[in-house]
């Protein structure tokens, strides 16, 4: 029983992190209508940049976000404006191919500079946990990453609801031409959205790096999580992403609890496939 409760808690906490992994992807799909196959690789790139920052400056991974987030925002902005914007009108394949290309380039660049060795962003906080009872302990880092994920989502939600810039992004997602007619400079709006998307991925990347080991090729497993969260939550839905992260985290952890650790991945895939087949519009849309 304790083990089950432990799994449940872990699943819920994973949910916040998963939401942070998926929110950027959901954003880009909802707004720019493109599938970023390099989303997971950008996330891992964030982990590595944080690794460099923490080891050279000797600061904590949390503090490294001050550098990692703006850097990744700029990368996203540039990638969108110099590459993806150029081929948006030409259908789905070119953007898929470009993000695929980016994925290969990022993975191999990381491989080249950091080798295939496992890395992590462990710090003193990584090992701490809160003991609730004999069998139930909550790792502090899970709790923190969950809170960070939820905060990221809430901030984004407020940004889209309350600020002119956020509203302009939403308006552009609804009708690009009319947004343009209302005075929105649409040339940069997609770049902005991609910058935000990649920045959130990087935040998730830093959290992930504090919990798990990462490798240059880890990106694809996070891409799967991002996909799952996006599909379950519904494309472009900010709060749907949060619930979706929660459900997917629970599904994976419960799969592992009942069918063994190696079932965690498979449960995830099956949940995702079933969703794609029966409710591709997401759980929460009408």
């Amino acid at each position: 029983m304790d083990a089950l409760i432990q799994s449940l808690i872990q699943g819920v906490l994973l949910g916040g992190l998963y939401a942070a992994i998926g929110i950027g992807m959901s954003l880009i799909f909802g707004i720019v209508k493109l599938t970023n196959l390099a989303h997971g690789d950008f996330l891992v790139l964030g982990s590595y940049i944080s690794l460099v920052v923490t080891s050279t400056l000797g600061i904590s991974p949390f503090l490294s976000l001050i550098i990692v987030v703006p850097v990744m925002f700029c990368i996203g902005f540039v990638v969108q404006n110099t590459m993806l914007n150029k081929v948006l009108s030409k259908g789905a394949e070119p953007t898929l191919m470009i993000t695929f290309g980016l994925s290969i380039v990022i993975q191999n660049l990381l491989l080249y500079f950091f080798t295939a060795d496992a890395r992590n962003l462990h710090s003193s906080i990584t090992l701490k946990s809160i003991t609730i009872s004999d069998g139930i302990r909550i790792p502090v880092i899970y709790l923190i990453s969950c809170v960070v994920g939820v905060v990221v989502i809430l901030i984004l939600g407020a940004y889209f609801k309350k600020t002119y810039q956020g509203k302009a992004i939403m308006a552009a997602a609804d009708d690009l031409e009319v947004a343009q007619l209302m005075g929105v400079n649409i040339k940069n709006i997609y770049g902005l959205a991609m910058g935000i998307s990649i920045a959130t991925a990087a935040i998730a990347g830093v959290m992930v790096g504090m919990i798990y080991n990462f490798y240059p090729t880890s990106g694809s497993s996070y891409l799967v999580i991002a996909f799952a969260v996006v599909v379950i939550g519904g494309m472009g839905s900010t709060y749907g992403t949060l619930v979706a992260g929660l459900l997917f985290g629970l599904a994976q952890v419960l799969g592992a609890h009942f069918f063994g650790a190696q079932a965690q991945l498979l449960t995830g895939y099956i949940v995702l496939l079933v969703m794609l087949i029966f409710r591709p519009q997401g759980l929460f849309s009408k």
């Binding site: 994925s103 290969i104 191999n108 080249y112």
Partner: peptide, 11 residues
């Protein structure tokens, strides 16, 4: 770097 070059060429 071969894969890097391949990726860049594709892009």
């Amino acid at each position: 770097i071969s894969m890097i070059i391949l990726g860049i060429i594709a892009i």
